[in-house]
Design a protein around this nucleic acid. Structure first.
Lengths: 157, 157
DNA sequence: GGTAAGCATTAATCTATATTAAGAAGTTGT
DNA sequence: ACAACTTCTTAATATAGATTAATGCTTACC
């Protein structure tokens, strides 16, 4: 049960590195991201209680994802040999899987505005601290589109 | 380890039902879907080796998702009390979570055409057997847009 | 203090996908 | 075999979000 303190900006995994680790976020904020052919970043964020998993565990193949910290964080790193760790709470793992599955359905069927509304509900503390362009990337839109969305929100209020 | 045979069209979980189950797909094809305010279906498919999880396990609250079979299938149903099941292979669960996480990033950053290409690569057997409108829903587009995409694909070839 | 570099915003234009509508093709029931 | 349905396709138009470009704002560096 080794807790690791991760400083803001610190990299936990580089694209192409061998992985085999799973991180449980105790505090702070992590992100994983990939870079597409056009050089664009695509971000996913992980808040406390989330699990961050490399994309191709457990074979010893390189991961296509970066993982780093957006805020000073504390994580628990688990090795892949935790299979027989009877302490591991599979209920929580299944719950998390259910959340991910439902999120995919939600993401596919909602507009940028709806996704932004959901984001500020889910991560109210984060909105101020993280650069707009990362929030935009997380929402799957451009920073310009996010500016527009925010403008329209204020008008409505 | 109770295996269940599920007939095409059979419903495993209705929206609003209490859940607490997890299904491992041995053969066939399941889907889960939700219906939005406008009455539109939003689909997610599960092929052999996938886990189908209700969205809000384990609390005894209703699920917002339907789960049913698109093909005759065989599934293993697990109760939520499997937490202390030492047979449960957490490596596989983490792997599956990693796949889901990466899929979210991919979905957010790809066009309808790219998602369709990926779909027919991933599920070549399924393309013929499942109605177009379900594939469209899975891809997050309308059936009309899918028709167009397919037309453009043929022209290119 | 001035200039450079990155970030956010705004606006003009462009493009992918949605919406609407209509017809063709397939299916189901009688 | 026909009528009633549903699904798929095609086309015309509308719209959300991308792209491009220009501007102001910081922050950093010389």
């Amino acid at each position: 049960m080794k807790e690791i303190t991760v400083k803001k900006g610190q990299i936990l995994q580089r694209e192409g590195e061998m992985n085999g680790k799973v991180y449980f976020v105790k505090s702070g904020l992590l992100r994983s991201y990939s870079i597409d052919k056009k050089g664009k970043e695509h971000i996913f964020m992980f808040a406390p209680e989330d699990w961050v998993v490399s994309d191709n565990l457990p074979p010893d193949q390189p991961s296509g994802l970066f993982i780093d910290a957006l805020e000073d964080s504390i994580v628990v790193a688990k090795e892949k040999d935790l299979a027989r760790d009877s302490q591991m709470d599979t209920i929580k793992l299944f719950k998390r899987m259910g959340v991910l599955q439902k999120r995919i359905i939600m993401l596919m069927s909602s507009s940028a505005i709806e996704r932004y509304e959901h984001f500020i509900e889910t991560y109210p503390q984060i909105v101020q601290r993280v650069p707009q362009r990362m929030i935009a990337s997380y929402l799957g839109i451009t920073p310009e589109a996010l500016s527009k969305v925010k403008g329209e929100r204020i008008i409505k209020k």
